[in-house]
Design a protein around this nucleic acid. Sequence first.
DNA 1: AATATTATATGATAAAAATCATATTTGAGA
DNA 2: TCTCAAATATGATTTTTATCATATAATATT
Lengths: 143, 143
Amino acid sequence: MISNSSKYAIKAVLFLALHSNEDHKIMVKDIAKPINVPQAYIAKLLQELVKENIISSTRGPKGGFYLNKENVSQPVINILNNIDGEKRLTSCMLSLEKCNEDKPCPLHAILSPSRKEILKILNEKTIKELALDVEQGNSYLPL
Amino acid sequence: MISNSSKYAIKAVLFLALHSNEDHKIMVKDIAKPINVPQAYIAKLLQELVKENIISSTRGPKGGFYLNKENVSQPVINILNNIDGEKRLTSCMLSLEKCNEDKPCPLHAILSPSRKEILKILNEKTIKELALDVEQGNSYLPL
DNA sequence: AATATTATATGATAAAAATCATATTTGAGA
DNA sequence: TCTCAAATATGATTTTTATCATATAATATT
């Protein structure tokens, strides 16, 4: 349902949400370590996220990755859709071409409400809110 | 969340639930085609399911795969657990070692109820019931 | 008992996902 | 404008998952 790459990406974005801003950028090596992901791997993922304006970066000295106001206001699902593609979360659980709401496959029929709920949450919850949950003690790290 | 292999396995078991019984076994080539899965691949998966008594088989002429009374009474989740391992469905969505109900990771915190609901359904719904849904027009094939 | 037919066991190959390595580009500061 | 520190682009390698192939074992039928 959610790839390793997406998990890493979410961890990294969450880390940035909690520790970076436009005046305090963080370089990849200082992200990789605390979130426990290989540096070269997370670097590649972060680059993809920058391309889609999900996170921000600048190069050179004093450069690094960070989140701006727009970045933190995006829903969590943007990360997943960018890394895994949109289909991953919405496609038929049995990979049947013809499965849809009107003629659901057997798994779809019994799991559709729960899946919809998950999609709804991921669409509504923003990066900012997720970080706030951590800051308020509703959820926990370390990553 | 659910591997290709598990999807194939569920399709095959569902096909057997609908078309086989102890007096009418079905050989692998007659399963592979209608469910649209490579024969050698589904053969391997079916063999694993036999080992765990999730489905039944006999060799030789008139042999094949089938489901007996016990087989059809098992919950769907048995298939998933056997093919993918138990952790796949229950492990932390961010793959954090320390994530648990008491100290949930940010994703866990917002998605836990929906995930629990999915687990509950997969644990309660039996193969038989899933097949019945199809027979009663509550869900649809072909596979 | 012999034969043909089926699943089973084993392992080889191919494709995809995850991981690692490095040369190039950009930008800040001296 | 030179230098150095950072991201970026590109692609190689490794691991996992998916797929394919085949020799062996079991069983019904003759």
